[in-house]
Write a protein that binds this DNA or RNA. Sequence first.
DNA 1: TATTGATTTGCGGTTTTATGCAATTTTATA
DNA 2: TATAAAATTGCATAAAACCGCAAATCAATA
Lengths: 256, 256
Amino acid sequence: MHKVATPLLLKKERQDFIIKELNLHNKVLSSDLCSQLNVSEDTIRRDLNELAESGKLVKVHGGALSVSYSGNSSEDVVYAREQKLIIAKKAVSLIQDGMLILTSGGTTLREVIKLLPKDLNATFCTVSLMTAEELLKHPNIEVIFIGGKLSKDAKISVGGDSILKLSEMSFDLCMVGTNGIDAKFGVTDSDLEVVQVKKAMIRASKKIVVLSISEKLNTVCRGGICKPNEIDYLITELDNHAPELASYHQAGIKLL
Amino acid sequence: MHKVATPLLLKKERQDFIIKELNLHNKVLSSDLCSQLNVSEDTIRRDLNELAESGKLVKVHGGALSVSYSGNSSEDVVYAREQKLIIAKKAVSLIQDGMLILTSGGTTLREVIKLLPKDLNATFCTVSLMTAEELLKHPNIEVIFIGGKLSKDAKISVGGDSILKLSEMSFDLCMVGTNGIDAKFGVTDSDLEVVQVKKAMIRASKKIVVLSISEKLNTVCRGGICKPNEIDYLITELDNHAPELASYHQAGIKLL
DNA sequence: TATTGATTTGCGGTTTTATGCAATTTTATA
DNA sequence: TATAAAATTGCATAAAACCGCAAATCAATA
């Protein structure tokens, strides 16, 4: 005759909590969870099993790790590559011979660079090591790197030097990947050093193109980069009649 | 009756840490690992065994080596790696905490960066994408990239902007790899854009260290970078009494 | 409303895993 | 070849995972 106490939280809430913890710390211990959530080890274990089943985390003895973290070993796989390829194709259509284009970093931008036509004659400017390396593979593209202190995480130039340099230049087009994009708050990022640089990038460019997989739509991070009315184009993998994009269209952003 | 202390990290985290160390330094010592991770030698050894089992590293007496380093990987084979490693070891001995160091590109420099001690606190400045990426792997090193137009072949910043920027700075030490080095003509290179940048690098630095495998000794290229009397140290894989180096010694260059 | 069936949860017992320790063997090297 | 460091082996133990099962909860429906 077992007593089963009414849980304080529903299963879904518990699992959401676990995911949140994981996003925050990249790891959770079963023991911590069951004291925080006031449930038995078994329940936690079953939750972890379910979440692992659907690929939301990686289970290990004693707890779980976030998928992004656990995948540091062979990171040749790009997250959501399919979507990013669609985005890249659309982005390429905006680029024309003779343009002076400024680009940020990120794997989406890399896909864009990879898809650039071989005979394109243009000048690209970037703050990202990864983007620069990719650009150098194109024989007809002139590549300029905006120097400065390099950020360990984003692997882009940050700090005063980069911002100053950007302020002295003027670009036809600026392509930025995003961490957060929202119809009301615009483009945001959680890394404040990155925020400063991206703001400078946007100030330096005539046209702003924001690239984002739909998953990041309607997310807001701490640091504001630009308001919706500063964005000229928003490119996602979705069809531009998709309901998810309606609010952005209403905000005056062109969809592609 | 043995007590088993709760580990601070989960097994997977530990193993990820080992892999990361390996990517950075190409080798790990079991003794280092077990003090860094606060676990017994046995645990480390079992981790190494598992990782070796799945081909993530190569186990050797006393520690482990990264697969690429241990040889077989045809991926990034570095020409004359053995010699470059010897050079790198010597070069590292010149670097101290708090220094501001300027470095060129090249695979020799990459080996130097890989061998830098983990706890080194210094600021590195570079014009090379490859060097920059390697430097970013060191958490305690501040990395500054000198921006500018990127050269397709050398993958370093060239042109007026980079040279101007360099002229505004002052470094404790400059480490350059070379294409040609000769006791009479000094350092030379065949790429004239690269020559300009290297000249600027040398002007901006108090001490000049030239790294060169012995194969390149007594070769002269079209573009002169600096005269022998401007060189402070010459580092090759040879013993500094080797006859090949006599003429350099006579030219007043310190050997290492 | 009452019944029935599926879901969720906790508990006891069992199995597996992870780790440390001690004694012995192997390896590297001076 | 002598010696110290490292690897191996076997064992002990605590923690975690697993497996049924029963109680409680929830959902749908007769």
